[in-house]
């Protein structure tokens, strides 16, 4: 009897400890979700339907704005549609250049080809430094260093690559391609390392060369990871500022993407538009909702299509 009570007690104590342990661990992500998802989005939706007026004696007063903020946001998006175009160009670069390059490099590292250890260090090394520092170094290279060599070569060029209208987009793209390697390669190589070795051996016994191995074994096996990274890229198309703030500060001008624009605007904005050219928080909130309404179905649809019609590991 005594033993049974003790056992029950210790079971209850064990359950309680487990519950405390679980609650402690789960509390952080739940808190994160409540603050950065529920609160932020709730606030954003609320703001999008409000307008503010300032009075020197009473401070700000809010009133219902209907869809005025959405109209203002849409007008701005439409008027400066180059930001969307730029965002799509950078997405295209990610899909067409960054992802294939990262996959190829990852495969090279995965296969432990010549100097793969060295390349691993070289490719990951920049990730150890802050993006801001890398951006600063890159700025020096494409301005001062570039001008030095241009002059030495007898060129009369007076502007760095980030300032020349016909070269600045390419200069930004190159930086983003360089910056994209580290994390992508880390993700791909770790996924590739999980592929069953017997599959590769079997393919090799059947006479598959490296490229066939890559296309017919490795790619289908890591396809879910590729889809995930692709969908993440697509869903971030209107929030990704493609390191423009690091390279240009607030002066990206015609290189701006939607993500960069939203970042710079939010930095300068207030409840009422502080000056010409800066949108108020309510209009920016409405803009965020419009962009979400555009990108959410596209991301979901793409994920569905890619998962349904993509290659299978079977």
């Amino acid at each position: 009897m005594t033993t049974s009570v003790k056992t029950k007690k210790s079971m209850r104590a064990g359950s309680r400890n487990k519950l405390i342990f679980y609650s402690l661990f789960i509390s952080i992500p739940v808190l994160h979700f409540l603050i950065f998802y529920v609160y932020i989005n709730f606030g954003s939706i609320l703001l999008a339907f409000q307008s503010y007026a300032f009075d020197g004696l009473t401070g700000y007063t809010a009133s219902f704005a209907g869809f005025d903020n959405f109209v203002a946001a849409w007008t701005n998006i439409w008027q400066y549609s180059y930001r969307i175009t730029n965002a799509l160009i950078h997405l295209g670069v990610t899909v067409v250049i960054c992802m294939p390059l990262a996959l190829l490099f990852s495969f090279y590292l995965y296969k432990n080809y010549l100097m793969s250890g060295f390349f691993k260090v070289i490719l990951f090394m920049p990730q150890l430094l802050s993006g801001v520092i890398l951006g600063l170094l890159y700025r020096y290279i494409v301005t001062d260093v570039y001008l030095f060599f241009a002059k030495a070569a007898g060129s009369e060029e007076a502007m760095g690559l980030l300032s020349q209208p016909d070269k600045q987009l390419a200069t930004v793209i190159v930086f983003n391609v360089l910056m994209s390697f580290g994390v992508n390669i880390l993700t791909y190589t770790s996924t590739m390392s999980g592929i069953n070795g017997s599959l590769i051996e079997s393919a090799q016994l059947d006479g598959a060369n490296s490229m066939q191995e890559f296309i017919f074994i490795v790619l289908p096996m890591i396809y879910p990871t590729i889809v995930t990274l692709f969908i993440v890229g697509v869903s971030h198309v209107f929030t990704n500022q493609v390191n423009l703030y690091t390279l240009y500060g607030g002066n990206a001008g015609s290189n701006s993407t939607m993500g960069y624009f939203l970042y710079v605007q939010a930095k300068d904005s207030e409840l009422t538009a502080p000056r010409e050219g800066v949108l108020s928080y309510p209009v920016l909130s409405a803009m965020g909702l419009i962009l979400t309404a555009i990108i959410l179905p596209i991301s979901m649809g793409l994920r569905h299509v890619l998962n349904k019609y993509g290659p299978s590991a079977d």
Partner: peptide, 25 residues
């Protein structure tokens, strides 16, 4: 931050102002 110092040329704001705008455009 004044709009007076940030001309919008070809739909894009030149936040660095007139000298930059003249050099760029």
């Amino acid at each position: 931050s004044g709009a007076i110092n940030r001309p919008i040329i070809d739909g894009a704001e030149v936040a660095a102002g007139s000298i930059k705008a003249m050099r760029l455009h």
